[in-house]
Design a binder for these strands. Structure first.
Lengths: 192, 192, 192, 192
DNA sequence: TATGAATGAGGTTTCATTCAT
DNA sequence: AATGAATGAAACCTCATTCAT
């Protein structure tokens, strides 16, 4: 009987439903059914439908940011850091295709129209990549003429697109392969 | 007074409106007003609201595909081809921020849920990149161990993300700069 | 090229279309297509959509009234008159199932809501039956205690229902059989 | 304050509104207002507007069928049965002119266009009449040469038309009078 | 007379949100 | 905290009608 974390269950249900139908084609009642709660209960935990998506985004970004920080904690070599970052990203995505779809597609779509949604977590994520590159430039591991913000964004775009391709085509095994190849690819583009 | 191509005007209006509010937050009547036609007129040219978005996609992809083909027609050097391809993409995007937003965000979002939408034009676009890479591999200009499909997708992801960044931040006249830099970046990743 | 009676063609087309889809589910453009004219042309001959139905009714009733008058002209025996009346009704209906459906169903449905539609022709039709009965009562051929208005209405209801049954079930051959039987049936109810 | 059977209230409201304006000229919002519920509430109980009409038909036919069965339960004489059947029909109609109009006019009009509407209850109703006649033929009370299906349909057409006449003219308290007369009329047509 | 592209009012229906229980 | 029946605003789309040609 005791439903320990109802908020969590609603968020998970939302990810499933949003991934399947897209945010705008999903009905709050579908999320409620998937979560095993009444429609009204949703509104005890979230301000409105949009808020569910925002919280999915915030929670998920927090989780992946923490995960990246843990993964990178003991590394010093910039090339190795970037390799691990990319691998961690792909691993996170691999754990939940649904979440990957929601983050890459739905949030991107909707964020522009959600006034006051704090997109900082996304900026932080880009910032992590940029910092790795900057470190590499400073340490001499990477070319000195790379634009770290731009490269970070390009790298993110590439791995995000590959995640999405994987998410939509279900070609699951290929993901780790893609991870290795794309990493190698970028390394050559960066290394001094 | 009769505006010649009403279909064209509606499509242009739709791009503007969809870019501003997102497809699902846009009302057909807004598109009509922007196009300077009555609501019902829309339905003389399009099956329904979704169909407008689909036609935007089809028309725009056809235009950019044609443009790329023209641009690449007389080139033989794979590296040069890729350089031109990327430049052409950025130039196309630069001409209409709104169109860029609709193509990268709205179409991506919605295409999954539009049964029967032919995504082939997108496949063709990826195919163009892949073919350039394949040619480069054959000619020895590019490494032999690159996966052309994967690289194509990664490259597309990167330039698409950069387009989007530019589109959303409005600021950067930096697009052409980004173009050069990202091209150089990929070149190093590919060249033998 | 010369389309002699466009009004006639539109009315015929309307009967076909209304019988198939019902008045309210029929579109003016369908009638136009069926008649081989442009949508706008309809409005050169009819005030509006409802007017088409009204004219179908008026024209058809005039035709059947005239037909009945001709058929009954030389008859004197009330029983014979009634027999011929019923036969003429069934024959008229048999010539156009579509018209039968429109007259029995659509006009009945709609007449209540068409202000100012003159339902007199229908009253005249009932009146013809009633007069035959009255004559029969006077001549002693029919019972003296029959209520001619009531009986007329009952008889009309019966033959109308049978027409409709025939129209909907297409059981074409059965119509003349039904005609004979129902006539015999009513005769027994009336004859002194 | 909670009205017990909202479905019932909506059906009753629908009968009133449909009788007044006709099905196709009635707006769902009118039915809602008449029922004292919000527009959306209608759709908690009915699939769509058409479904309301279908349910009116199904419910009403079930009611009148049950009523006829009760009324006829203890009777054995075929002539008496028919007499009671017709009386029961007229009584049912007399209780609600609006319902009579909807059943005779609107349902008839629309049923053809409502795919999947089960018209069996109407067939059952006709079947009840036919069975009474068949019984009468077997028992020798009625002529042996009557066609029971045909006669049933004729009888139904007659009483339906008279109901409608009464419903539309509002005036006649004459309904029970009509009942007696038409019964007598048919008896003579049937009796051996 | 004839056309048919354009109009725009308005209805059906959906669904996020509320609130009495 | 939880429910889910009820709400009602709002949008897509249809289609009768008009009018410039």
């Amino acid at each position: 009987m005791a439903q320990p974390d109802k908020r969590r269950r609603i968020l998970d249900a939302a990810v499933t439903v949003f991934a399947q139908n897209g945010f705008y084609n999903s009905k709050v009642s579908q999320v409620a059914r998937e979560a095993g709660v009444a429609d009204g209960t949703i509104y005890l935990y979230f301000k409105n439908k949009e808020d569910i998506l925002i919280q999915v985004f915030i929670d998920s970004m927090a989780a992946i940011l923490a995960r990246q920080e843990t993964a990178l904690a003991n590394l010093t070599d910039p090339a190795e850091k970037l390799r691990v970052f990319i691998a961690t990203h792909f691993n996170s995505v691999a754990e939940s295709r649904a979440l990957a779809e929601v983050l890459t597609v739905e949030v991107r779509q909707s964020s522009k129209f959600m006034r006051g949604t704090d997109m900082k977590p996304f900026g932080q994520y880009l910032g992590m990549i940029a910092r790795i590159i900057d470190d590499g430039v400073v340490s001499g591991a990477f070319r000195s003429n790379v634009d770290s913000r731009l490269s970070a964004r390009a790298i993110f775009g590439a791995i995000d697109e590959l995640s999405l391709a994987w998410a939509m085509e279900r070609g699951s095994a290929a993901l780790s392969d893609a991870c290795e190849r794309v990493t190698a690819f970028f390394m050559t583009g960066l290394e001094a």
